[in-house]
Amino acid sequence: MDVVAVDISGRHAEGDRYIMVSASVESRISPEGIERARGMRLVPLVARSVDMEVVIGLIEESVSGLSGVVIAERGDLYNLARWRVESILGREFKYPESRGERRAMELAHHASFAGRRLALRLMDEGLDFGAGSEAAGGI
């Protein structure tokens, strides 16, 4: 089964803003684990809030161009029912169930966490992610 596991790191306020990085990992999985990781996309976003609109916008941007069923942790999508997420995203979606899907989520989690640390370092060095984040509801 082809899946795109997506995870957002940084959903906690840093002052008056949220510095988030969404990682999407496109992979082929079996019920037992990952067979092949095909691609990865990291999208940074600096936003004023983490409401549903911002989160969905970030996920949409993050999974674009990657093929497969989108999977994400329940908490990232405020425990919304699967059919509602599918309607909003306009793509096939599910919450992780099998060991393979959980493994893919773990990979996405590591990627987003590392991506955020990199983003923070780059911001310390003066790089501005804010300008490009406007379209996705960011600053």
Partner: peptide, 14 residues
């Protein structure tokens, strides 16, 4: 069952 296997750290083939 998958959740429980994942939680207890089982990575053996099934």
């Amino acid at each position: 069952c998958h959740e429980a296997l994942w939680d207890c750290g089982c990575y053996a083939p099934i």
